[in-house]
């Protein structure tokens, strides 16, 4: 298949942004997008901000369940009753 010439502008950059951030792109495409990022302040800023947001999302603290909560759930979850449902 003949390769279509793509102009790597902001629109194209954003189209591939998810895969770009995941570093899940073919090398050739990744290089082209990287070239665009280096000359486009807007896209560079977008990448930086999204990376920070993804980092913060990953760090969302693990909610520590109190044992009493689980115990309370057990109260209403007697296995023998489940059978009858």
């Amino acid at each position: 298949m003949k390769k279509k010439r793509i102009e790597y502008n902001c629109e194209v950059f954003q189209e591939y942004l998810v895969d770009y951030l995941d570093e899940d792109l073919p090398a050739e495409l990744s290089i082209e997008l990287e070239k665009h990022r280096m000359v486009c302040r807007e896209c560079a800023r977008l990448v930086k901000t999204l990376r920070r947001i993804i980092y913060e999302l990953k760090k969302l603290s693990y909610y520590e369940t109190e044992e009493s909560v689980v115990a309370r759930i057990h109260t209403s979850l007697k296995i023998k009753r489940w059978k009858r449902k």
Partner: peptide, 30 residues
């Protein structure tokens, strides 16, 4: 069960809802 409760809590941001999700999940699993 703690992992499931935590998952539900983080998605729903509500203890009561998370407890219901855990309960429903365990019933379904059973």
């Amino acid at each position: 069960e703690k992992k499931i409760y935590n998952l539900a809590y983080r998605l729903l941001n509500n203890e009561e809802d998370a407890a219901e999700v855990l309960q429903e999940t365990l019933i379904r699993a059973y």
